[in-house]
Amino acid sequence: MDIQWPLVLFTLFSSMGGCLFVFVGINEFTKKSEVSGFVPGLVAGILAIVGGLCSVFHLEHVERIMNALSRPTSGIFVEAVLIGCLVVCVAVYLICLKREAQAGVKAFAVLGIIFGIALSFMAGHSYIMEAVSTWSTELLPLGYLLTALPMGAGLYWALACKTEESGKFMAMATLICGALGLIGALAYAGAVDAFAGESLMVAVGSLVFAGVVPIVCGVIGLKAPKEAYGWVAFAGATIGACLFRVLMWTLHTTAFGFFGQNF
């Protein structure tokens, strides 16, 4: 089974955007960062849209996307609805932010948090099927969500934390999310026996980058909360999340699957 890169990128970017907005929304209530949520919110919306566009290119005939969306029970329909809901929430949040409508800001921050988490989970849940034993477990979508959280935490830290207080807060959040990412990747990899054969390096890489790197950056950031550590945590978490999403395909393919049948 070839690795379906449009789907890998879809779940990566949409989850990245969703989890970034989770922390944008959280900050509207904690006020740890004095930086406006406009830029991080805008980035979150753009990432979600990019992820949605990536999913379209998985279809052999892109023009048939409306046929896929006409089936409410299909995974692509659910994902499209969640992306649409998230993007709408982000857009209205940004408008309310510009108009200083605090009630609307908080309301759509909460909705955005819900849709961001739901999108990150359901992006993996769509793959669950009895025909593929290593995909037929709830640990797969849980791993999708938990490995996405460090990306959102690291990126928000890098974009919006300019003071020592906000930096330390997001360093702790990144540390916690890194621990969750490590647990999520380890639970799924252990359950499907991914630490054997050709999937070993991919499984280990997902643990190191999605879990260990954000944890280390968080620990260092608690002492020296610099934005640079947020960028490092984000970069590591992105690599780890990508490897986790590749892992499910490597359980059914040889190494040449990374490059396609024509390699």
Rank of each mutant, 00 (worst) to 15 (best):
S166Q: 00
L82I: 13
F21H: 11
L186E: 12
M16P: 04
I220W: 03
S70R: 03
A187P: 06
M129T: 14
A173R: 08
W231K: 04
T134A: 06
S126G: 11
K168S: 05
C217I: 01
G260W: 06
L119F: 07
T30E: 13
G240Q: 08
I239N: 00
E198K: 11
F115L: 09
L180E: 13
V24L: 13
I95E: 01
E198Y: 01
T30H: 13
A118G: 05
V219E: 00
A171Q: 03
F169D: 00
L149V: 14
T137Y: 07
S55D: 14
K106Y: 03
A185H: 08
A187C: 05
V22Y: 03
K223S: 10
P6D: 02
I65C: 02
G124D: 05
F259D: 10
A91E: 04
P40Q: 12
I128H: 04
S206Q: 10
L82M: 14
L175E: 09
I3Y: 05
Y188P: 11
A103N: 10
L53M: 13
A80H: 14
L7Q: 05
I26N: 14
G37H: 12
E28N: 15
L111C: 15
S74T: 14
G218N: 05
Y229V: 02
Q102A: 08
P141V: 04
R99Y: 00
E138W: 07
V24N: 15
I46Q: 06
C85Y: 13
G152T: 09
Y188C: 05
T137V: 01
C177M: 15
G257H: 09
N262F: 11
I117H: 12
Q261P: 03
L180K: 11
L94R: 10
I65M: 13
L53Q: 01
E198C: 01
A107F: 09
A189D: 10
I215V: 15
V56P: 11
S36Y: 07
I183V: 14
H252K: 07
K32L: 01
W231H: 06
F29K: 09
G45F: 08
G230Q: 04
L207V: 01
A48P: 01
G197Y: 01
V88H: 09
S136Q: 08
Y156W: 13
L82A: 12
P150V: 05
P150N: 08
K223E: 02
F263S: 15
I46M: 11
A179G: 15
G45C: 10
L42T: 10
A224L: 02
I215F: 09
F234K: 06
T250N: 09
G260F: 10
L182C: 13
G37D: 10
M170D: 00
I183W: 14
V43K: 08
A210G: 11
M172A: 12
G260S: 07
K98Q: 08
L146C: 12
I215D: 05
M1C: 04
M201V: 10
A237H: 06
L159G: 00
L186F: 15
G230M: 03
S70A: 12
T30N: 14
G104I: 05
V8L: 01
V56L: 12
I220Q: 01
G75I: 03
M1N: 05
V208K: 07
A241H: 11
V22G: 02
L140E: 02
G124I: 07
G18I: 10
A44W: 11
T137R: 05
F169T: 01
V90G: 13
